[in-house]
Write a protein that binds this DNA or RNA. Structure first.
Lengths: 238, 238
DNA sequence: AAAAAATTCGAGCGCTCGCTCGTTTTTTGG
DNA sequence: CCAAAAAACGAGCGAGCGCTCGAATTTTTT
């Protein structure tokens, strides 16, 4: 099952995350564009397909051990390429880290900033949309987000700074909506920045502790509804 | 600065976590007791002191890279022991993982179950105590908790199962208090298990994203107060 | 169908890893 | 103060690492 299919099978009619943005192939096409100079294979279809196989293998192997424990021989075996073949798609192992992190950061920013028109006028609806979209995006790209979350520590300094900034940008999107809700008198929030910071881990828990919720049989719509209810009661006008 | 000193400097008069339980020396004395058969040095004082130096070095090195990237030569240099000397304190590198994980799991369970007498009768106060105590404990033992959280994936299967069970046990403590509050009519909680699951990441964010809160200048008492306020409004009787 | 270009291959290189063990140093007890 | 016991030492081992490069294979062009 591909990532996109996994997303589809969980999606409700309220789906807000377009499949064409989250399929492994689509993501790898974007990665390829962004790192064309590191990939020596010139034919785009071939390069995209093989890069997808490589990165899917990285995400699979890194879910059981850390990225640095994964050897390139493991990666060659699981991806189906040879040792030498791998190096046509990246110049060194660390580039794989950077490719994945960068794409996750860019994607989450792009998706969350693309709210349906008119939603700015209704902070409560906008907040619900943000929560729903964030959780569904991380569900559709779960291995990517887990990887970025768990391996961020080992990134080169520049990439780590970029990831941190991306995190803060997401938080700011939530803080803005909270501020607008307070201004319109629909929310009561004593500390907007702290509240935005507290909403974040509620969204992340769905992918960080995915195994727990799967074992428990919690469907995604129940989790989304639970988080929305929890947050809305916590910030409801008093 | 030792872990205990770091805890002290943040503690308010409301402090609920005893220093003697969270100093590196005290923790390592307990580790030594639990793994006496793996440590060949017989003199307890010497063994505790050196084990403390070793584990402090592990936590320090693993905060910048992953545990598996940390070489035993790095560990020897930072801890001040020789390569051979290290192996008087553990039989292989993985044992270090298990020592730290086990002690974190045991400690959090022991501390959270040791609530002051009479608190069972007052679910709201008990919940506040649990939140306060959990956050302060993880503050006092921050490197330990970060390590257990980030490296859990790489544990041997048995140790990972143990860690998962410990996680669930903590969640059950919160679920019990929520259930008692609902029974007494002081809380309104539609889904007790999901709510308990959502409180957990709010507590964990303080140590997982410690750098963010430090940079932002959020003091621990403000974070504790923020979480308590957020949770109490979310579950307040309607 | 042959020549040229693009892509894939995998044994081998230098290196560092976890771990060992014979030796040296420190501590202990009479 | 010395011999025995305990502890610490660190060079060295085989294994596996990231990475390379000339050869082999596949695809494209003519």
């Amino acid at each position: 099952m591909t990532l996109a299919e996994a997303a589809d099978s969980q999606n409700t009619p309220l789906e807000t995350v377009p499949r064409n943005a989250t399929s492994t192939e689509a993501i790898c096409a974007r990665i390829l564009e962004r790192h064309r100079d590191r990939v020596s294979v010139r034919k785009p279809h071939l390069a995209t397909a093989n890069l997808a196989r490589i990165i899917e293998a990285v995400l699979k192997l890194s879910s059981r051990q850390s990225f640095h424990e994964m050897s390139l021989r493991d990666l060659a075996r699981v991806s189906g390429l040879s040792m030498g073949g791998l190096y046509s798609y990246f110049d060194n192992k660390n580039t794989l880290l950077v490719m994945i992190l960068t794409e996750v950061s860019e994607t989450v920013g792009a998706v969350l900033r693309d709210a349906p028109a008119g939603l700015d006028a209704d902070p409560a609806a906008h907040l619900r949309w943000l929560i729903d979209t964030h959780i569904r995006l991380t569900e559709a790209m779960q291995p990517w987000f887990v990887f970025a979350f768990m391996e961020a520590k080992g990134f080169p300094a520049a990439a780590r700074a970029f990831a941190t900034e991306s995190e803060l940008a997401t938080e700011r999107i939530f803080a803005d909506v909270l501020a607008r809700g307070v201004a319109q008198g629909v929310f009561t929030v004593p500390d907007i920045d702290l509240t935005a910071a507290l909403i974040k881990p509620l969204l992340q828990d769905w992918y960080v502790k995915r195994a727990k919720y799967r074992k428990r049989g919690t469907p995604i719509h129940a989790y989304v509804a639970g988080v929305i209810a929890f947050v809305e009661r916590a910030i409801a006008r008093t």
